[in-house]
Amino acid sequence: MDIKIDTDHVRAKAEAHRVIKRKATLKKVLSYTAFVGPALLFFLVIQILPFFMGIYYSFTSWNGVSSSVEWVGLENYIKIFTSDQKFMDSFLFTTKFMFAAVIISNVIGFSLALLLNAALKTKNILRTVYFIPNVIGGLLLGFIWQFIFVKGFASIGSLTNIPFFKLAWLGDETTAFWGIVIVFAWQISGYMMVIYIAALQGVDTSLLEAAKIDGANSWTMLKSIIIPLILPAFTICFFLTISMAFKIFDLNLSLTGGGPFNSTQSVAINIYQEAFQNNRYGLGTAKSILFFLVVAIFTTIQVLATKKREVEA
């Protein structure tokens, strides 16, 4: 009899423990759902669903307005690679722009970070000043610099006769290209500077002091100690600048509009014009899918390469 009572007691206790455990699990699931659920829902509705719809529309000849959608298979993709020279030119421009903008933006951002990480009395003010261009909208920034290039530089050139200021900055293919690079680098370098400063502040100063005692100069410490220690920051900054440079739209639109003669037309502007001005939504979507794949490949290769350097360092 005692044994039966003990057995029933153990079973009841085990059952109560299971009930408590189920309630705790349910509470945890509900709390996770309450916090993550809305964000996940918005992500699915705003990002994932339109992405797969875009893949579908890239195989159609939909004009973006009518209710009828005609399936054309790979016709849009074949047209892009065989007869759309304007898209290829815009892709070539965007690729050249990406390489130039990434290098210049990161060099300026890292240089500013090294300068403002030193013990300067005005470093906090200067950090704010250099970061301000990043908070200005691309369209507004483009129109401001358009005025500077067209009116400001022309006025300075007429007063000083300096050839640099007398160039047709937005009216020539070469100078227009470098004009967009200059404005992009001016806008984004402050953002990169903040990331590099955060990384530099995490460097152990005792290592630098030990290197100084051993006779290392500033260049040696930068090359052999500082840069290897902050390689994760380079990974982040390269990733951000590559993706931003590839996706340039508003700055390009407000500065040159893709001119002169479409010589500075980015891929994003080409896709926009194809889909919303020429009403060839299916073809524009096919271009955007190809563009997505190219950006994904570039950024993946960059992240893998810099991550490998982090491990080796």
Rank of each mutant, 00 (worst) to 15 (best):
Q265N: 05
K13W: 09
S206G: 08
V69D: 00
A39S: 10
G37I: 01
Q277G: 00
I78N: 14
K4L: 09
S158H: 09
L222D: 09
S105Q: 14
D204Q: 15
W71C: 03
A216G: 08
L112T: 10
K123D: 01
F234Q: 08
L92I: 14
F87M: 14
I271N: 04
Q201N: 02
H17N: 10
C237N: 14
Y57K: 04
V135W: 07
L229P: 05
P228L: 03
E70M: 06
Q146V: 08
S224G: 15
I230V: 09
F177R: 01
Q273A: 12
I197A: 00
F87I: 10
Q302W: 00
L170Y: 10
N279K: 10
A185L: 10
T7K: 14
V19D: 09
S31W: 01
S155I: 11
F239C: 14
D2R: 15
R309F: 13
P133Y: 10
M244R: 12
A12F: 08
A113Y: 02
L208T: 04
R280W: 06
D84N: 15
I104H: 01
F291E: 04
V10G: 00
N252I: 09
Y272S: 06
L200E: 05
F234D: 07
I182G: 06
E173S: 13
M221N: 11
G152E: 03
A24S: 06
S206A: 14
P38A: 05
W178N: 07
N270I: 03
E209T: 03
I271L: 08
K247D: 01
L290T: 03
V150T: 15
V129C: 00
R309H: 06
D6Q: 11
T285V: 00
G258S: 09
K307D: 13
E274Y: 02
Y56K: 11
N278E: 13
R11Y: 08
Y272N: 09
L253R: 09
T174I: 09
N279F: 15
T205G: 07
A211H: 14
W178H: 12
L141C: 11
K23I: 01
V19Q: 11
E274D: 07
T205L: 12
F292W: 13
W186L: 08
